[in-house]
């Protein structure tokens, strides 16, 4: 059974000493990963390494295998070719295209049960804090069915945040979010990376975040790739990593 910690939002149990020793340096290592679906290779021999505090931005047109890569890292798709290290099920939080919410439960119930299913028991105060963080405090008691798409996405982000897992696998996290929601996401992601977490984010848009270290990875057909001489993202976005 999963080890339950009843505590606050950041995973510090009530009995922990105020300054805990450094968490082990985590890394995600992928070696020669391949994914074949429907008889076609989506990608092959994919290798990369991600360290604590880094984010990997997955780019590419529709159908290029971004979601499949995330699902392989999450363990939902089998990894028949290649090796993945550092993505144990207990270490990751996965946000799919769908929100993973039961529509008949309220926002608060969804969050509480989802985190409990993941092995964490949040105190009521921590739950409220999580909902506040994504701007859903007013809508906490509303059934998920009556929330808007953007609100549901925020709730899903709250779930990822509350899981306190080091590796975040996010598939189009800003889909259906308004400008304010995108800021919420940026805040959450930055805080997560600064606390030593890792993230793999599939996104169509450039995430304008003042991040120190980030890797871009583009999947997709050769014909649609931009000229390698030109940076594939607007120069204004500091998310891109310059060697």
């Amino acid at each position: 059974m999963a080890h339950r910690e009843r505590g606050d939002l950041d995973g510090r149990a009530a009995t922990d000493a105020p300054d805990a020793p450094d968490a082990p340096r985590r890394a995600l290592r992928v070696e020669r990963l391949g994914c074949a679906r429907g008889g076609r290779w989506l990608f092959r021999d994919l290798s990369f390494e991600l360290h604590a505090g880094q984010a990997l931005a997955l780019r590419g047109p529709n159908g290029s295998g971004k979601s499949s890569l995330l699902r392989q890292l999450a363990g939902l798709l089998p990894r028949e070719h290649g090796v993945v290290e550092g993505a144990a099920p207990a270490d990751l939080a996965y946000l799919a295209h769908q929100n993973g919410l039961s529509l008949d439960l309220s926002a608060r119930e969804n969050l509480a049960l989802a985190t409990r299913i993941g092995g964490r028991d949040l105190s009521p105060a921590a739950l409220e804090a999580a909902l506040e963080e994504v701007g859903l405090r007013q809508a906490a008691a509303t059934p998920a069915r009556r929330l808007s798409q953007g609100q549901r996405r925020r709730l899903a982000l709250a779930r990822v945040r509350a899981s306190a897992r080091p590796l975040w696998l996010l598939d189009e996290p800003t889909a259906a979010l308004d400008g304010d929601g995108e800021q919420v996401f940026a805040r959450l992601l930055t805080a997560h990376l600064e606390a030593g977490g890792l993230a793999v984010v599939a996104t169509h848009q450039a995430l304008a975040l003042p991040l120190p270290r980030c890797i871009a990875l583009t999947l997709g057909p050769a014909s649609s790739r931009p000229d390698p001489g030109i940076a594939p993202a607007p120069a204004a976005s500091p998310m891109e990593f310059a060697p």
Binding site: R40, W41, F43, R44, D45, L46, F48, L217, T218, L219
Partner: peptide, 22 residues
């Protein structure tokens, strides 16, 4: 990596990888 007429052209990014069909 260019591919033959039959294959699907998919590639992976800066972290290295390859394309091809089955």
């Amino acid at each position: 990596t260019s591919t033959d007429a039959v294959g699907d052209m998919t590639r992976s990014g800066a972290p290295h990888g390859r394309s091809g069909d089955l």
